[in-house]
Design a protein around this nucleic acid. Sequence first.
DNA 1: AATTTTTGTTTGTTCACTAAACTAACCATT
DNA 2: AATGGTTAGTTTAGTGAACAAACAAAAATT
Lengths: 387, 387
Amino acid sequence: MAATGDAAYIKQINRSLILQTIIEEKMISRADLSKLTALTRATISVQAADLLDDELVVETQLEHHSVGRRPIMLSINREAGFALGIDLDYGAMTFALSDLLGKLISLETVPLESMDYDDIIQTAAQQIARFQEQASSSRYGLVSVVVGVHGLVTLKEEVHFVPRFGWNNIRLKEDLERAAGLSITIENNANLCSLAERVFEHHDAKNLLGASLSSGIGLGIMMNESFFKGEDGFAGEPGHMIIVPNGKPCSCGNKGCWEQYGSESAFYHELAEKKGRDRVNHDDVRNWLQEEDKTVIEMIDSFIFYLSVGLNNMINLYNPAVVVLNSELLRIYPEAVARIEENLVSNISHYKHLHVSNLGKQACVLGACALGIKQFFQIPTLQLEAE
Amino acid sequence: MAATGDAAYIKQINRSLILQTIIEEKMISRADLSKLTALTRATISVQAADLLDDELVVETQLEHHSVGRRPIMLSINREAGFALGIDLDYGAMTFALSDLLGKLISLETVPLESMDYDDIIQTAAQQIARFQEQASSSRYGLVSVVVGVHGLVTLKEEVHFVPRFGWNNIRLKEDLERAAGLSITIENNANLCSLAERVFEHHDAKNLLGASLSSGIGLGIMMNESFFKGEDGFAGEPGHMIIVPNGKPCSCGNKGCWEQYGSESAFYHELAEKKGRDRVNHDDVRNWLQEEDKTVIEMIDSFIFYLSVGLNNMINLYNPAVVVLNSELLRIYPEAVARIEENLVSNISHYKHLHVSNLGKQACVLGACALGIKQFFQIPTLQLEAE
DNA sequence: AATTTTTGTTTGTTCACTAAACTAACCATT
DNA sequence: AATGGTTAGTTTAGTGAACAAACAAAAATT
């Protein structure tokens, strides 16, 4: 059983604390680390020596214009290793390589021609090998590979269900690890998006919801610096929350699910019907909006009403500090946030801020890199600059 | 800043682990503790000596019928102190005194004649003093006083809002601590109910939802052995989840909130209307059910439909292992669970078990005692026998 | 040049753990 | 009764990481 405590455990705790403080402060002396962490200067010196030895931090001499001995500044050796984040989306895989402070080194999107599982594994493995080669000259090489999957992922990182690919209970982790020859982390894409918002954008939000609106509605829940996953890892499926009893039928077996009313594809689908078209896309909507097309504005208002109903429910259930909506549609509708907030009037709902994401489609890969960095440093919280 | 590690911290971690193991195993030797905790026998001996010294555990010699030296069994000194749990409900306060293993020593309900805040504080303080006297001969006396409040409680234990009492931003903790002269913990009643279910009933459910249906719908969320509270402490207010857009108006300012459809009082209210009565109560419904009254059965079915809609939503958002419904109404309708489960058919919803609570109205005070015991022993998880 | 101030290192102590040897107590067999 | 085997619990020596305090280094101020 047992997670017992011993000296090594203490040292690990304090090492994490020190690393985390260095990342937050960007550049800091041993003396200041001692003040911030409440560890003695002696302890800091020993730990700093270990970190220097491991090449995880570097020393810098700055000029100094106050009394006392000049401090030796410590900062993260950001190129000691690299993190690879992968967004395994329908139709395309996106790869992001970042340094240890989350700065993007390269960002590439590879279209997925084949839907065949083995082909996808092969393509991914080839790309991973390429990035591994690119990172190989650094001290630690590729420190992590994290794959974002647009579906249900269990606590054991098994892929339980991915609607667009038609995958059921796939052992993606094992298959990809075998093909690529290194350890891989599988995570739900909405979780990665919410982590990205937390790490790169909302440094004050300890409790954050990230909702991705596209074909369905994905929800990433960051509470107290960690993902909220529930018993199996399936927490946060708000798309199948019933908001209209006996409403539109849904593929899940129920009627009136939120994603039949509040997802972007529901919006496009209904708009196409109203416009008597086969399909409409993002650019059509943008043009209609510039022309102040009445039908479109009415439909957006209706969309926002149903969106707000679901948001109201999530806010009541999770009490987040910040809610981030990742939606291409809302990005082109400047009043979106104001319009939604007009609907969030209950005196029970408590949240601090509602935003439309700035990270957009990069959120998933950025979150994947961030997760890899967190794991590598073994730190519970991470705050980085997007550049 | 900083929660740093040092030797004392290690010792505390291992002490908690040992105490928790003794509670789980009820009676265990040092040698077996060593096996279960992976600490060496030497370490266990030192810690056991401390615990004996603190009178938190006692030694027992049992007869023994196998080879080798006879073990000295350790078990919790259950009467070293007592926990007091208080349910501050509208109209009545319930007090439960338990030993350190959660066995009820006394259970008393005091009607609240006055609604005046100061009178309530006075009454509570007097009762607390009585129980403190009762516990005073033990080594630690009253080790904790936990008050369950039927409303929103912040992370700092401020009472933000209690509908039935009309309280807003009340400093109940401070006022009661001053009047009673000891430290007091304030907690939301639904949280305490869910803790009680976890501690006394569902020992395998790491992730549990406890929903209390009465005048409103309260939700206690136990995830990974701790309360899920959100940014302010207000997470889990499903009563104000909108399940009927533009539905019945609610006091919260929205329309179509779940508690207008799925709470017991909504049910009674609507039934009274249908029956052309001023009001109906629990016994009326029980009688009608025995007579197989058609109106009542129809109405229960409708109630269960709306109840299921909300449960479906909570299950999708939290992915719990176990959902416990605390409802007097459902207790007298034996098919309740089966009927609800007929509605939970989505292939996205994941939960393991749905139950109607056995603890009923005692859940809150039992959970309050359990919380006090957890705090006193400083252990993250607790499993006790209800007797 | 001497003084003050701050940074970082060195030395010695404390504390909780482990490992291994030891003592204690019991059963089984001869 | 004596011996051997087995399990329970204690003692002792050693390790690692923290802390405290003294010390050394380096800069600005006087």
